[in-house]
């Protein structure tokens, strides 16, 4: 599998504290991988660096062979990376449809075209009934779905999903799992997700990367990493899963 995303030696410190150090991994074209680890492991920092929000202290990021670190967040989106925020950021004053249109304009020339594409995405995420509602009126699970819908509407080759399952009920998780699996299988969208909900990770990811204290401590299939003593140790040390 050729690599779509290559992360090489990525490091970042915040006022002397190393949040991420020398991170190296890659995600293959069409792959569905998960980045897991206890709170504070540096997962979101890693995402922020890939997405161009935080500038890394060292290291490189390549997308499909093209170097993308140092680009701005909007340039990285246009290069084909869609991302969601762990703390959802809906455009509260806009309608659900308009929220998604903003994303769809990334790859559509006209508003009319973007609007049609946005409606398709809303259908896919089960938000069609809410299309005219202000985003502020959505419930948390709906906001999580809107977050995914917007990122998806930008027409990404790589989706970075930051804890989109958190706060969802089991049935809602299964629904989201189904949606993501379809996107991956039918549209060939590569997905890298940060996730705490192991039910979703086990169901979705074929490969898992485990971070702890800013470093990768294990990688492998979900079954492999959950049996890995270092991984169990890292979780037990903090929250005892």
């Amino acid at each position: 599998m050729p690599a779509l995303l290559e992360v090489d030696g990525l490091s970042k410190s915040f006022s002397g504290l190393r949040a991420v150090s020398n991170l190296t991994f890659s995600v293959g074209q069409g792959e569905l991988a998960a980045l897991i680890g206890p709170n504070g492991a540096g997962k979101t920092t890693c995402f922020s660096m890939i997405a161009g929000v935080i500038r890394p202290d060292a290291g490189r990021v390549h997308l499909d062979g093209r170097r993308v670190d140092g680009l701005r967040a909007d340039q990285i989106c246009r290069a084909g990376v869609g991302r969601t925020f762990q703390v959802v950021k809906p455009f509260a004053g806009l309608s659900v449809l308009d929220n998604v249109i903003v994303g769809a304009l990334n790859t559509h020339r006209t508003v009319a075209g973007a609007s049609r594409a946005a409606d398709e995405v809303l259908d896919l995420l089960g938000l069609a009934a809410k299309r005219g509602h202000p985003a502020a009126s959505l419930t948390l699970p709906e906001r999580k779905r809107l977050e995914v819908a917007r990122a998806l509407a930008t027409g990404p080759r790589l989706l970075l999903l930051d804890e989109v399952m958190a706060g969802l009920r089991p049935t809602e998780i299964d629904l989201m799992v189904q949606v993501l699996r379809d996107l991956n299988a039918r549209r060939g969208i590569t997905i890298l997700l940060i996730e705490h909900v192991m039910r979703a990770v086990m169901a979705l990811a074929r490969r898992v990367i485990v971070m702890h204290h800013g470093e990768i401590i294990a990688r492998g299939t979900p079954q492999e990493v959950t049996r890995n003593p270092a991984v169990i140790e890292s979780y037990l040390g903090e929250e005892a899963v």
């Binding site: 997405a51 929000v53 909007d74 991302r83 455009f91 004053g93 990334n106």
Partner: peptide, 26 residues
Amino acid sequence: LKSRAGYYWQAIREDEDAARALGVNT
């Protein structure tokens, strides 16, 4: 307001970080 600029402006008004993440050159 009904053009690309209008959508992008409102996105910036509501949340600039989110707008950037959706490819808007804010």
